[in-house]
Simulated assay, not measured.
Amino acid sequence: MHKARLEDINKLFLEYRRLFEARDAEQIADFYRFPLHYYFSNGKKSELSREYFIGRVKKLLHLYQTLGVTQIVGAVTDVIELNENTSLATLNWVLLDASGEKPRQIYSAITRYMVCEFDGELKINGLIGVNETKQLKYAIKGRS
């Protein structure tokens, strides 16, 4: 993998994370190429439109607010170069409540992203759910 590509992927997800913290679903969608190919953790696959995706992100952001997420830390843990324009990036997301004296982890989850260079910029072309749905359910159950 070219060092420049790895740096670009890291920059992409740093900005992506910042917009999740800012709770801006419209701008989060700008990181994606639509229709988006989404692979659910249960094995199903779906093609999502931008409008549908934004609605799902708004619901997720609402859940984050309900759970008290104030900070998100994301680390690129692996990148596989699939071809000269496409990479598979694995990220570990840690969602925190940093409003207290010491940050409290709400949950962590792994997500994989198909990242492609398209019209001279990196875009997320595919989203692969690994375990966030399960982790989110555990976090919600823990609040009850």
Rank of each mutant, 00 (worst) to 15 (best):
M1Y: 13
E7D: 14
E7T: 13
I9E: 05
N10I: 13
L12S: 13
L14N: 13
D24F: 11
Q27I: 01
D30K: 07
D30S: 11
Y32S: 01
F34H: 09
F34C: 08
H37Q: 11
Y38E: 05
Y39E: 08
Y39A: 10
S41I: 03
N42E: 05
G43P: 04
G43C: 08
E47Q: 08
L48N: 07
R50C: 01
R50K: 06
I54R: 01
V57C: 01
V57R: 00
K58D: 07
L63A: 09
T66N: 10
Q71W: 06
V73L: 10
V73I: 07
G74Y: 01
A75G: 02
D78C: 08
D78H: 15
I80Q: 11
I80V: 12
N83H: 09
T86W: 04
T90K: 10
V94H: 12
A98D: 14
S99T: 13
E101C: 08
Y107G: 04
S108R: 11
A109E: 01
I110M: 06
Y113C: 03
M114N: 07
C116I: 00
E117P: 07
E117V: 15
F118K: 11
D119C: 15
G126V: 07
G129T: 00
V130N: 05
T133K: 07
K141N: 14
S144R: 13
